[in-house]
């Protein structure tokens, strides 16, 4: 694994990954074990955007999901700075992980998954309301972001189920970026966007970074990588076969 550094003003460490190992055991397919991550360690500071690189199957998405505690690593630590302290997501109690996700750690997945029949603007404002922000302020912030992402106002009250792929992806991005998370994980947030919208998302990511967020992302588009990344972390496919 190699790291290339493009010089950046380094702030406090926000993510520290230490000796992370992750494999999948498929109990219903003869108990075969697939090793994916072996001994992964790196840190990400405030104001950095680290691009995960590596060929298909190298474990980029698995690593990103492990950083969100969506996947459960077998060993190692994922330390996230939450309220000033590094907390290990791998061993933290569920209610602690939930609190970290609510206030510190944001994640943009590749696909939108939401409660059916809820209007777009309500979905975007939802996480703000959950944090106790009043409804007017939350909806205003959601509206500003939806406008910037060029979701027509006529669609705001509609659930996103019938939207185009690109529109759904922008709603997905808005649902996370409506908060100012200190740590952001991005899984291909620009994959199905046109040039104009891709630029808007690049601008939003750079603004978050300049405001001090620590970002880790997977981007397949070379232009986007160059526009947002401050550093690359290259993953090698795990070698040991079970």
């Amino acid at each position: 694994m190699t790291m290339t550094d493009n010089n950046q003003n380094h702030g406090q460490d926000m993510i520290r990954v230490e000796s992370l190992m992750k494999s999948f055991t498929l109990h219903n397919q003869g108990g075969v074990t697939l090793p994916v991550l072996e001994d992964v360690s790196f840190t990400v500071a405030q104001g950095e955007c680290v691009i995960l690189a590596g060929q298909s199957g190298a474990g980029k998405s698995t690593l990103l999901r492990s950083l969100y505690a969506n996947y459960l690593p077998q060993s190692g630590q994922v330390l996230i700075r939450h309220d000033g302290e590094l907390v290990d997501l791998v061993s933290a109690a569920p209610h602690v992980v939930l609190d970290i996700r609510a206030r510190t750690l944001g994640y943009v997945s590749q696909f939108l998954r939401v409660i059916p029949r809820v209007g777009t603007i309500d979905l975007v404002a939802d996480s703000l309301l959950a944090r106790g922000i009043n409804e007017v302020a939350a909806r205003e912030k959601a509206a500003t972001l939806l406008s910037r992402l060029r979701i027509p106002e006529s669609l705001w009250s509609l659930p996103p189920a019938t939207f185009s792929g690109g529109e759904q992806q922008r709603v997905n991005i808005a649902m996370t970026l409506v908060q100012d998370y200190p740590v952001l994980l991005l899984d291909e947030p620009t994959a199905s966007l046109d040039v104009e919208n891709r630029q808007t998302v690049v601008d939003l990511i750079n603004e978050a970074r300049q405001n001090g967020s620590a970002i880790v992302g997977i981007f397949h588009d070379q232009a986007v990588r160059e526009a947002v990344g401050t550093r690359t972390y290259e993953l090698q496919p795990a070698r040991s076969a079970a």
Partner: peptide, 15 residues
């Protein structure tokens, strides 16, 4: 966590 159990189930029965 709900999403962890559903997306990365560990036990044979959950899988």
């Amino acid at each position: 966590l709900t999403d962890q159990v559903l997306d990365d189930p560990q036990h044979a029965y959950t899988q």
